[in-house]
């Protein structure tokens, strides 16, 4: 019990936010931001540190991150100034970033946040967003309508190359 309590206290004392990407970190700059093996020209924007962990699990993404710390929601008093958006714009301007990938859930608030950041960054860099669609191994007939409608909305030309 004592150990658990101490561990929690230590965690609270030691874990802060990375000064570059705002991901949870025990050091001033997190491991991902420090790693020389990671592509410094690509930044994936997420709302929460949990999203970083989820994407890292895939081991498919080699770029860096930027954690916003929430989504724009006037009802909860959260505007762009309450999120880590200004540091993101500064990063894009200073660090020669070639692509910003928006990986934010397609809720109303997520959509607004994505569009807002897109509007700010479009003049300086390429902004993309992850696709939403059918889960792997899922049969079309069992997909729920909202997912199916989203997948239809995000359709693209068949790549025959």
């Amino acid at each position: 019990m004592q150990e658990l309590a101490q561990a929690l206290l230590d965690a609270k004392k030691q874990v802060g936010l990375c000064s570059v990407c705002f991901h949870l970190s025990a050091d001033p700059v997190c491991e991902i931001c420090r790693a020389p093996s990671r592509d410094p020209n690509t930044v994936c924007v997420v709302s929460d540190s949990r999203d970083v962990i989820a994407i890292e699990k895939t081991r498919e993404y080699k770029g860096k991150y930027h954690v916003l710390g929430g989504l724009i929601s006037p009802m909860e008093g959260i505007g762009p100034d309450q999120l880590h958006i200004t540091p993101l714009v500064r990063r894009v301007n200073q660090d020669n970033i070639q692509e910003v990938i928006m990986a934010i859930s397609p809720s109303v608030e997520g959509e607004t946040t994505t569009l807002y950041i897109g509007k700010l960054l479009k003049p300086f860099t390429r902004v993309t967003r992850i696709a939403f669609g059918l889960p792997m191994g899922g049969d079309l007939e069992y997909a729920d309508e909202v997912t199916l409608a989203r997948a239809l909305e995000g359709r693209r030309d068949l790549d025959m190359g």
Partner: peptide, 16 residues
């Protein structure tokens, strides 16, 4: 009033 933010909400309102 953050006019960029309002413009995004306008666009969302119009789309949906």
């Amino acid at each position: 009033l953050n006019s960029t933010e309002l413009a995004i909400w306008d666009a969302q309102l119009a789309t949906v």
